[in-house]
């Protein structure tokens, strides 16, 4: 699948932002006043910035407002609605905390659950697609949620919790890579795609057109697979191992936290790029790819 920068930025940044907001909602760290303002500002900047980046992915954004209408069937629609609710509820909590020094515990808890709900609905957009077997696995939602929680814990200054969450994320990511590799296209082949398997082995003799088209650009991306192993090392080393070691072995200062967060960011960008780039769509079978 084509790794569109807008979608990578959206899923990673908004995931981090909603992860941080979820921790703030349950009182971690227990900040008030201007310090709380800075934390909430960071959470909102990441969450809203990510959501705005996703709009850049739309070819006809003037109709984006209509995306709130189809919550009964569409995970993308549900994501939009849950995100708006999460941001609104957290705003009430944040205003009470920053300006009035009041901690509305129930509101914060509901806000935190809605933040995680947003990340879950984002993950379901990918998980639901039977056409992309590497995404269509039970691991996709927990990987997205652990990304948000692990990165959120780093940003919220919770070293122990961040280490545990990121270690779990690392284990699950590796598991998903292995199972995803084995799964391939989940039984779909050029023979099932064309129905010609009863004659014999099928290959593409002539593509329908000599040039590229939307289908090939969007759903037959091939660069990422070549570098999959290196990118996995970068994602695992920088996204997981380095932050976990920093959080567990060194005294937590602003410098170690900053290094851990930046390494984590680079790691998850690489990992999320790969999440798209190495995912194979069954449609590409019609092009012998």
């Amino acid at each position: 699948m084509h790794p569109a920068p807008s979608v990578i930025a959206f899923t990673t940044l908004s995931g981090l932002g909603f992860g941080l907001l979820a921790f703030l909602g349950i009182g971690l760290p227990p900040v008030t006043g201007w310090v709380a303002f800075v934390f909430f500002f960071l959470g909102y900047a990441l969450a809203v910035g990510g959501l705005l980046a996703s709009v850049a992915h739309l070819a006809n954004p003037k109709n984006a407002i209509k995306a709130f209408s189809q919550w009964r069937s569409s995970w993308l629609s549900r994501e939009g609605i849950v995100a708006v609710f999460a941001l609104l509820v957290m705003t009430v909590f944040a205003i009470a905390l920053i300006f009035f020094g009041v901690r509305l515990r129930l509101v914060g808890l509901i806000g935190a659950l809605l933040c995680l709900g947003t990340v879950f609905t984002t993950s379901m957009i990918y998980t639901q697609l039977k056409t992309v077997p590497r995404w269509n696995m039970w691991t996709t939602p927990p990987v997205f949620i652990l990304h948000a929680l692990g990165g959120g814990a780093l940003l919220a200054g919770q070293p122990r919790l961040a280490a545990v969450l990121l270690a779990s994320l690392g284990a699950l990511m590796v598991w998903a890579w292995i199972v995803g590799d084995e799964k391939g296209r989940a039984g779909s082949t050029m023979e099932t795609a064309t129905g010609l398997g009863h004659i014999g082995k099928v290959r593409l003799l002539e593509p329908p057109h000599s040039g590229e088209n939307y289908l090939l650009k969007e759903m037959a991306y091939q660069v990422g697979r070549k570098h999959a192993f290196k990118l996995r090392l970068i994602a695992f080393g920088l996204g997981i191992v380095l932050p976990v070691l920093l959080m567990l072995l060194l005294p937590v200062t602003h410098t170690t936290a900053l290094v851990a967060i930046l390494a984590h960011l680079v790691g998850i960008f690489a990992g999320r790029w790969l999440f798209f780039a190495e995912a194979e769509h069954v449609q590409a079978l019609y092009y012998g790819r």
Partner: peptide, 19 residues
Amino acid sequence: DCMGCGLCAWACPYGAREL
């Protein structure tokens, strides 16, 4: 009503939709 998100093309196994 279409906002051009392309998700329907991702969901189609046959490559029948083009943005």
